[in-house]
Design a protein around this nucleic acid. Sequence first.
DNA 1: TAATAACCGAGACGGTACGTCAAGTCTTCGG
DNA 2: CCGAAGACTTGACGTACCGTCTCGGTTATTA
Lengths: 200, 200, 200, 200
Amino acid sequence: MVGMQQDGAARGPGRPREERVTGAVLTAVVDLVTEQGIGAVTMDAVASRAGVSKPAMYRRWPTKQDLIIAAAESRLGVLSVPDLGDFRAELRLVLTARLEAYRLPGSDRLIAGLIGAAAETGAGRGQYAEYTERITSETRRILERGMARGDVDPDTDVRAATTLVAAPLLFRLIGEQETPDARFVETLVELVARAVGPTG
Amino acid sequence: MVGMQQDGAARGPGRPREERVTGAVLTAVVDLVTEQGIGAVTMDAVASRAGVSKPAMYRRWPTKQDLIIAAAESRLGVLSVPDLGDFRAELRLVLTARLEAYRLPGSDRLIAGLIGAAAETGAGRGQYAEYTERITSETRRILERGMARGDVDPDTDVRAATTLVAAPLLFRLIGEQETPDARFVETLVELVARAVGPTG
Amino acid sequence: MVGMQQDGAARGPGRPREERVTGAVLTAVVDLVTEQGIGAVTMDAVASRAGVSKPAMYRRWPTKQDLIIAAAESRLGVLSVPDLGDFRAELRLVLTARLEAYRLPGSDRLIAGLIGAAAETGAGRGQYAEYTERITSETRRILERGMARGDVDPDTDVRAATTLVAAPLLFRLIGEQETPDARFVETLVELVARAVGPTG
Amino acid sequence: MVGMQQDGAARGPGRPREERVTGAVLTAVVDLVTEQGIGAVTMDAVASRAGVSKPAMYRRWPTKQDLIIAAAESRLGVLSVPDLGDFRAELRLVLTARLEAYRLPGSDRLIAGLIGAAAETGAGRGQYAEYTERITSETRRILERGMARGDVDPDTDVRAATTLVAAPLLFRLIGEQETPDARFVETLVELVARAVGPTG
DNA sequence: TAATAACCGAGACGGTACGTCAAGTCTTCGG
DNA sequence: CCGAAGACTTGACGTACCGTCTCGGTTATTA
């Protein structure tokens, strides 16, 4: 998270932050995006909807971008894929997890808003890259595991292959403006497996 | 284009629009984005830089989003790939053309701005989808040609494969915040060719 | 009038001006003021309502102020009071003529607009003063006639007295926002007659 | 005043308005009018000159008209004339007070702007009438006092006489475009005193 | 128990951009 | 040359949003 206090640390003096605020704000952002698009995500609108004051928000997220990123992350469980002994199966698990996140209502607009927000400032770009990294890292791990195991071609360019896996779902959601479905995931698994599978 | 008059049509009464304005404005947008990022693309700034008045701009593009979309489109030549007798070669040609467009300075910011702009209004979405269609249509054609020719698996899901081709370059540019290079294109050609190549 | 061609003069080459335009425009101004206030008197609105083009208007009245003054004048017949042998009677005639003009619907707004228009530019001020002069000149004449005749105090300051006569009707209309009536005129005649009547 | 908070009242929650803003803005309006005419009274210009933001101005005065009216009012001290035992003397005092206000530089343009502003909106008219009321009320009072005392004709129409007193100074300033002087006031005192003095 | 420190809602603040509107000019076509 | 139609520049309008700050008050930890 961005700008959040550590939990276990010894709390300093003064009134502690109300837990209520953080949750209410993130929920308000997601709801507003879902119902009315990111155009409706105004700091004032979020504050009003969450029943919270603006300073309380800015204490937690120093800019709007930070808030939107946090809201997007709150929809994306951190994924950890165990070794299933099979590249295809692990790949299917990764993509299905992403699919589920993308199928939540408003995800498309939230992510598009995220991209737009990152584009507006040079400042927000680092945080956005970090966000992307989180999306791709698990894919990289299963590719490497597959190479070690032998069901992925050992000559594969891992970074390129990772991009190949991560991009299509997002492109369908944002570029083609269409919510991806399970069939699409299944097709992708097949295509990617053939692309990086061991040669002949 | 958005809101532009037909060319050959008989002109109505009144003073005709000055061609100069349209070109100067689109150029100004692209230049501003390139030099200072979309944050600098203010309607006033564009007007000032193009030596044009704001009302003249709003007559052509009713909102800022429309203007940004039009500017992005003005950077994208319509691509037509001839039959080269080989799927790999045609695929390389398509991706290289896209690569060149993306390597133009400021393309990343322009496209990110485009996504953000489209996300802000329900209105802009149709135009954005149209923009995506232009990116993907040629790819679809060469896939179909390949299937007819026999160097693409006849069972391939064409739409899914199209997405697989179009997405990674864009993801690298926008998501990973990195300008793609020729090596990446080469790797992609190889991966995609193996993914959709004839089985066995 | 301002900026109008002489009538009898030898006309130059080219299409002559249509008489229709002048009348239609002045009527449109008065109607718009009456119905919606001077806020609605836009050059475009007037042109549209009169079924006339803007250049045609600007050929006749070089600025908006000129047009408004012309419209105001079109409501104010030039007054000429004959010698009635009695100051009170002549004064009553002058004030009644003004009363009738002021009672026309929209007169208050037209005059207030006139003042506002004159205030906006140093340029319009001369024309406005000329307009005021036309209002006051007849009053000055009957005062002088009364002094000669003997029913006005020969020591009267004519300019001050003229102001005393001209001002109250206008003040009631504009300042007190109330349409003056015949009783008010009668009272004014009495008050003014006592103010400037022969002493002793 | 227009839209201003009560003084003694318990203040509501939230950051209180800065007193500085109100004063600085009114001063800026008066200065701009004085130096360059009401044509120069732009909301942006006022804001810039007062060192204040536009929204801060619009929070206090919802339209430009309201601001101009408020600025005009800020130049008009509330007048209270004591019983001097003589109608002429009290009348002279009232008119001299008005004269001084009108002689302040820029008063003519400020008042003309005020009339124009009030004319543009139905909304502003109430406030303008209130402004006029303030000008005339003290005159009404001294007339009534004079009637009680006996140096004013008991049959005088008080409202008409009030108008007779208030109007000429303003007409000279606005209509005749001339700053009134002490001699004019003296002449008016004499004329009005004869108009309403006891008969016979 | 008192002081202190950080929190809370409410809402005003400066700044900046938005999209609109009006005035007055200019350009095309046709009469 | 006049007319209608409509685009053009200039410049102001009133609004919206961002991120900050100032209030009066509350809630915890420390002295």
